[in-house]
C-alpha cells in the first residue's frame, strides 16, 4: 500500500464521513441559525473531501476519481477514525464530537501547510481557514452548553464521557505515518497530542466539564482493521444509488 494514498484516504474519509453525519442535521436542528451554520460546516467538509480524495485518486493512478472512492469502496477500505462515524446522538453530542475533531483537524492542517508535497500543502492551506472557523464555532457551543443550564451541562458531560475514548485514535502512529513523517509530507500524529491536550483542557475548563481520567482508546478506523457497526449503515445509505445503478451518471 502506498503510504501517500493511505494518508490521503485518512484525511478524505474523515471529512467525508463527518460531513455526512453533520448533513443529517439539515432541517432538524434546534434553531434555524444553527441549522444554517451546520450546513455550512457540512458543505466545507464535503468540499474538502473532494480535494483529499481527488488527490488520493490521482496518486493511486488507477483510473478512479473522488466519487468512485467515496461511493464504491466497502467499509474495510475506509480509513476514517471511529470518532466521526459514530451516530450523531443529540445536538450536544454532535457538537462535542465536532469540537474534539476540529481541535485535532486544525492542528494537523497547520502542520500540513508545510508539507514537502506541494499539493498537500495547498489543500491544507485552503482548508485550514475553514477549519479554524469550525473550531471557533464548535468550541463556543461546547462552552455555552457546558456552562448553560443544569440539563445542558449534564448532557454535555455525558457526551464527553461517551466520546472521549475515541479521541486517542487521532494520535496513533503506524508505519504509514512514520514513512510520511520521514519524508516531511505529514506530521507524526503522536507529536500533536500535547498541543491538543492543552487546547481541550482549556475548552473543557471553560465549559465546566470534566475530562475523563482514562486514556483508553478505541481504534481500528484509521487502519481499517475494525470499524464500528455504524459505518456499514452509513455507507449503505450514502452509496445506495451508485450501487443500485452501476454505470449510470448523475
Amino acid at each position: 500500500m502506498d503510504p501517500a494514498f493511505e494518508f490521503l484516504c485518512r484525511m478524505g474519509d474523515n471529512t467525508l464521513v463527518l460531513g455526512h453525519r453533520v448533513s443529517e442535521w439539515c432541517g432538524h436542528s434546534p434553531v434555524l441559525e444553527e441549522d444554517i451554520a451546520l450546513a455550512n460546516t457540512a458543505l466545507d467538509l464535503i468540499g474538502q473531501t473532494q480535494l483529499w480524495l481527488g488527490l488520493a485518486a490521482e496518486v493511486e493512478g488507477a483510473g478512479r476519481d473522488a466519487d468512485a472512492l467515496a461511493m464504491t469502496r466497502d467499509a474495510w477500505d475506509f480509513r476514517n477514525v471511529l470518532l466521526v462515524e459514530l451516530p450523531n446522538g443529540d445536538f450536544g453530542r454532535t457538537m462535542m464530537r465536532q469540537c474534539l475533531f476540529d481541535a485535532w483537524h486544525d492542528l494537523v492542517l497547520a502542520e500540513l501547510r508545510d508539507s514537502t508535497d506541494d499539493r498537500i500543502a495547498a489543500i491544507a492551506d485552503k482548508t485550514s481557514r475553514e477549519v479554524a472557523y469550525h473550531l471557533e464555532r464548535s468550541r463556543d457551543t461546547v462552552i455555552g452548553l457546558g456552562d448553560g443550564t443544569e440539563e445542558s451541562h449534564a448532557r454535555m458531560q455525558a457526551a464527553l464521557d461517551r466520546l472521549y475514548p475515541y479521541v486517542g485514535e487521532l494520535f496513533e502512529t503506524d508505519a504509514v505515518d512514520a514513512a510520511l513523517a520521514e519524508a516531511g509530507i505529514a506530521p507524526d500524529p503522536g507529536n500533536l497530542r500535547d498541543a491538543y491536550d492543552a487546547r481541550i483542557t482549556g475548552i473543557m475548563a471553560e465549559a465546566t466539564l470534566t475530562i475523563p481520567d482514562s486514556r483508553f482508546a478505541h481504534k481500528g478506523g484509521r487502519d481499517g482493521v475494525r470499524h464500528t457497526e455504524h459505518l456499514g449503515h452509513l455507507l449503505t445509505e450514502m452509496q445506495w444509488l451508485q450501487r443500485a445503478y452501476p454505470g449510470a451518471t448523475w
Binding site: S29, G148, E151, S152, R155
Partner: peptide, 17 residues
C-alpha cells in the same frame, strides 16, 4: 421533534449568555 428536542439547546446557550 426538532423543536422539542432543541429546547434544552436554546435554553442552555441563552443561560450561558
Amino acid at each position: 421533534k426538532a423543536w422539542d428536542e432543541g429546547a434544552w439547546v436554546r435554553e442552555g446557550l441563552l443561560a450561558h449568555a
